[in-house]
Computed example of a mutant assay.
Amino acid sequence: MNLQGSIVALITPFKDGKVDEQSFRNLLKWHIQEGTHGILVLGTTGEAATIDKEERKRIMEIALEEVKGKVPLIVGTGTNNTKLALEYTKMAEEMGFDAALIVTPYYNKPTQNGLYEHYSYIAKNTNIPIILYNVPGRTSVNLLPDTTAKLAQIENIVAIKEACGNIKQVTELLLKCPEDFTILSGDDFTAYATVMLGGKGVISVAANVIPKEMAELMESSLKGDVAKAQKLNLKLYTLYKAMFIETNPVPAKYALWLMGKIETPEVRPPLAGLAENSLEQLKKILKENYGLI
């Protein structure tokens, strides 16, 4: 499994309160066509927190049908309940996913020792490759580089999605973790910088909307084509910001809806639809800056 480049953190399309299976299939096919290097389903952007077990299994089945063997296929299996996270991770392994992305436990606010015990327990009871996911802005806990380096000694913990937004922390990860441990940006704003420092790519929100361009940015960055990568990164910056005009994945869903890629921009409570002024801003950016609508 080659974990690098632009890995999309895919939305989960809904229609009338249910998973829109056809739109989901269409998105998966589109990403393969556009050159996305890997696909993550049921992450934060996929609204995993409001998806039940039956829906989870169905989403995973569809993803495997459309993607397996074409690009690395990852599924989010993290919760703030260690036993449930293990259950979801075992399910991913049994179904044949290439890797599991496991977010740090939110709300509980574990210590660094608690984080180590959480991840090591799951890793030692499974064989599937595990990607750690650090996103302090959502979880209220920061997986520190020393803890990550310790976890990286466990054979099937192979990578981290680092979404702290702190380039200093990314640098410390590169210094402290084994060379074969993969560091991915979890934040479009730091994707280019992370690769320039020595990371391998990004798990991206913006790739939902501009998969080809994010793939090109990561390819040029990984090849060391600095001039092209810099130009692309600056060009895409306004879209990165637009994807967080309100809480992710709401703007991404509205963008895809405006582009005709999904039937509705529906999100599940407690998320709400875009406010009118945010929608107008998003429309303007998509049209005037990128010609997407």
Rank of each mutant, 00 (worst) to 15 (best):
M1D: 10
L3E: 11
I7S: 02
V8G: 08
I11N: 14
I11W: 08
T12I: 01
T12S: 10
P13S: 05
P13C: 07
K15E: 00
K15V: 04
D16H: 12
G17R: 02
E21S: 09
L27I: 03
L28A: 05
W30A: 08
H31I: 00
I32T: 03
E34V: 04
T36P: 03
G38P: 01
G38Q: 02
I39M: 06
V41I: 14
L42W: 02
T45L: 07
A48S: 15
I51C: 01
R58M: 09
E61T: 11
I62M: 08
E66V: 03
K68L: 00
V71C: 04
L73W: 05
I74E: 06
I74K: 03
G78C: 09
T79R: 02
T82W: 13
E87L: 11
Y88R: 02
K90M: 09
A92T: 02
E93A: 01
E93W: 07
F97P: 00
A99G: 02
A100E: 03
V103Q: 13
T104Q: 08
Y106G: 05
N108H: 12
N108I: 04
Q112P: 00
Q112Y: 08
Y119D: 01
S120Q: 13
S120V: 14
I122D: 04
A123H: 09
K124Y: 11
T126P: 06
I128D: 04
I128P: 06
P129Y: 13
I130H: 10
Y133W: 05
P136T: 05
G137S: 10
T139E: 11
V141T: 11
A149N: 07
K150G: 04
L151I: 08
A152H: 13
I154K: 11
A163H: 10
C164W: 06
Q169Y: 15
Q169W: 15
L175C: 13
C177E: 05
P178N: 13
E179W: 12
T182V: 15
L184F: 08
S185T: 04
D187L: 02
F189V: 11
F189Q: 12
A193M: 12
M196I: 12
G201T: 04
V202H: 06
I203S: 09
A206N: 07
A207H: 07
E213Y: 11
E213F: 08
E213K: 15
A215E: 03
L217W: 04
G224S: 08
Q230C: 14
L234N: 12
Y237F: 15
Y237P: 00
T238A: 15
L239G: 02
L239I: 09
A242E: 10
N248F: 02
A252L: 06
W257N: 14
R268S: 02
P269Q: 14
G273H: 09
E276R: 08
L279K: 14
K284Q: 12
K284E: 11
L286H: 08
E288A: 06
